[in-house]
């Protein structure tokens, strides 16, 4: 049976694990290289991208995740996870995986006061809008040709996919809407 990992160095990992379990797959927390070896797909949750990035370096996970991704492991990054997957982070030299050909701006919508939720129309997920919760959220400013843009807010990219990488600027794990997690599960199972 396939096993999903949620990177649990810091952030909203518990909510992602609950959402994956709700979708009917087995999910574990990943804090070590050994645990990473054990999973077929990885979620990098929201949290503080600087904290998670530094810990990935300190605890030997950064290179390991890059190697697994190159070998085909699918990764889904939300918010901080989106930042960590980006090649370019505007105005920052913080540690990152750099696996997606995108330029991401941190806190792009503003501080917590400006955080918001909204209905987001996403063609890939049908007619009913996705309830999207943006918390000090980033967005993608520029994306390379290999990146498929799946949703935008005011022309800024908030869902994107490049091969086995999926990112959202917002937090489906904080809602009951499981369509994005199901889409990712299909990616891992080679069905999407």
């Amino acid at each position: 049976m396939m096993k999903f990992g949620v990177l649990a160095l810091q952030g909203a990992f518990r909510k992602h694990k609950l959402m994956l379990e709700h979708c009917g797959v087995k999910a574990i927390e990943v804090k070590t290289a050994e645990e990473l070896d054990d999973v077929d797909g990885l979620v990098i949750p929201g949290g503080e991208s600087t904290t998670i990035g530094k810990m990935m370096v300190d605890w030997g996970l950064l290179g390991k995740i890059q190697t697994r991704a190159a070998a085909g492991m699918a990764i889904y990054g939300t918010c901080a996870g989106m930042i960590l997957l980006a090649k370019d982070i505007v105005g920052s030299d913080q540690p990152r995986l750099g696996l997606m050909d995108v330029s991401v701006r941190r806190n792009a919508f503003g501080r917590q006061r400006e955080s918001f939720e909204a209905g987001l129309s996403v063609t890939a997920f049908g007619n009913s809008p996705v309830r999207a919760v943006f918390i000090r959220a980033p967005f993608i400013e520029k994306a390379g040709a290999a990146v498929k843009v799946m949703a935008t807010v005011d022309q800024n990219i908030v869902i994107a996919r490049q091969g086995n990488m999926l990112v959202t600027a917002f937090h489906p794990e904080l809602t009951k809407d499981d369509r994005i997690h199901k889409y990712f599960i299909n990616m891992v199972q080679g069905k999407a």
């Binding site: 810091q10 949290g47 901080a80 006061r113 939720e117 937090h171 904080l174």
Partner: peptide
């Protein structure tokens, strides 16, 4: 678009979890 909802407020705390 809604700001300052309880989900948005409690959501930031979720992002701080496991941290210092």
């Amino acid at each position: 678009m809604e700001q300052g909802t309880f989900r948005v407020k409690a959501g930031l705390a979720e992002m701080l979890k496991g941290g210092v």
